[in-house]
């Protein structure tokens, strides 16, 4: 799966969990850009992403993601 495919599936998950249909994710998008993306919802997002892609992030990955792009890169790498 390539980056574009991953980020578009991410987008679906974000819309679903954050209940905001207007979300359009880009590589540089961070929690500051999306009002609903608080620390609590971040955990939910992580859980749903893990469920969707059937993989696990490590605890430091979860802490250190700086933006959507890094999360997607991590997925792409794990899926290879």
């Amino acid at each position: 799966m390539n980056f574009e495919e991953v980020i578009s599936q991410f987008n679906e998950i974000f819309i679903d969990v954050l209940e905001n249909d207007d979300i359009v994710l880009e590589r540089e998008t961070t929690a500051k850009d999306i009002e609903e993306w608080d620390s609590l919802n971040h955990i939910q997002l992580v859980v749903e992403i893990e469920r969707h892609f059937k993989l696990r992030f490590t605890s430091s990955e979860i802490q250190s993601f700086k933006n959507v792009g890094e999360m997607c890169d991590a997925i792409v790498a794990k899926l290879q």
Binding site: I43, V47, R56, F57, S59, I62
Partner: peptide
């Protein structure tokens, strides 16, 4: 239990 969410966020039980 999810060790990751415990370490990061003090969640003693997985959110599910």
């Amino acid at each position: 239990f999810s060790p990751q969410h415990y370490v990061n966020s003090n969640l003693a039980f997985s959110i599910d």
